[in-house]
């Protein structure tokens, strides 16, 4: 498996359709193509309902495209993709398990022994700064701490690909910034390919090597930008004031704005019916 291409995500002409209750066909994304190189940090931005999460689902193998192919490491995705970890906005922790048990779950699912899994989990909890909290339950932690646990749980399997679906969406601004920094720090260590979904453009530009802008309903790729800010980026709060950051941010925002406005105009008229594409 030490393939040079391992971790490369190739999305080629992917279309995904759902059947609505009325029997109509709803196209969530249409003819989407882009590639994420191994070790690359790719952010996907776009208005609500543009099929970002659908795309993630297909890369991980939870969903299958109606048309086109998704390849990971050169192989067409069929079933759950190996070497992928997920991080959601909600932090996917089992409420009846301790912090340690939650983090150890991944290796156990992968077939590791309990002792080994716990040893690794302890190590990862140390890395995210939660030593001493192993025996707490998720509801006994603050939002930021839970996020760290989720991050440890996502990284413990040493994924080739890390998929993040608005992972910091529910956090306040300060916590979000701290978590972003930590994420970058951890990412630098193992360098998985990252597919990061967000609707926060600043966040996307600050973190990513590449930003994919998607249109809404059906979701298509509108533009792809390479972010040539140097790495390591340092603090995400500070990078926002760099001229190159602002330049890129403006450039992408111009592309994005009309999409957001279009999407808003459409959804403001009636109740939002988010499909699985939400």
């Amino acid at each position: 498996m030490a393939d040079a291409n391992n971790g490369r995500i190739e999305i080629e002409g992917v279309t995904k359709r759902f059947l609505t209750p009325g029997g109509e066909v709803f196209t969530a994304i249409k003819d989407v193509s882009f590639t994420v190189e191994p070790g690359q940090f790719c952010a996907v931005v776009g208005p609500t309902g543009c099929g970002k999460s659908t795309t993630l689902g297909m890369v991980s193998g939870l969903d299958r495209p109606s048309e086109g192919t998704v390849k990971v490491g050169g192989k067409v995705v069929d079933g759950i993709t190996d070497g992928v970890s997920f991080m959601f906005q909600a932090d996917a922790l089992l409420p009846w398990k301790t912090v340690l048990a939650n983090v150890a779950l991944g290796p156990i699912f992968k077939g590791a022994s309990k002792a080994e899994a716990q040893a690794r989990a302890r190590d990862w909890l140390r890395r995210v700064g939660l030593t001493g909290f192993e025996d707490r339950y998720p509801h006994q932690l603050s939002g930021g701490m839970r996020k760290r646990v989720a991050m440890a749980a996502a990284l413990i399997n040493e994924p080739k690909i890390l998929m993040m679906d608005e992972p910091f969406g529910a956090l306040d601004v300060q916590t979000k910034a701290i978590m972003s920094n930590e994420l970058l720090g951890l990412w630098e260590q193992s360098r998985p390919a990252v597919l990061f979904i967000t609707h926060d453009l600043d966040e996307a530009v600050a973190l990513a090597d590449k930003v994919v802008v998607m249109t809404s309903s059906p979701g298509t790729v509108k533009a792809v930008y390479d972010i040539d800010l140097p790495r390591p980026r340092g603090s995400v709060q500070e990078i926002r004031f760099e001229p190159r950051f602002l330049e890129l941010q403006h450039q992408i925002w111009d592309t994005l704005r009309e999409e957001v406005e279009r999407a808003y105009a459409r959804t403001a008229g009636g109740p939002v019916t988010e499909g699985k594409a939400a």
């Binding site: 609505t20 209750p21 019916t273 988010e274 499909g275 699985k276």
Partner: peptide, 11 residues
């Protein structure tokens, strides 16, 4: 059935 479908859709 209609209700459930609607629910499934929203999900």
């Amino acid at each position: 059935v209609a209700m459930l479908r609607k629910e499934r859709e929203v999900r």
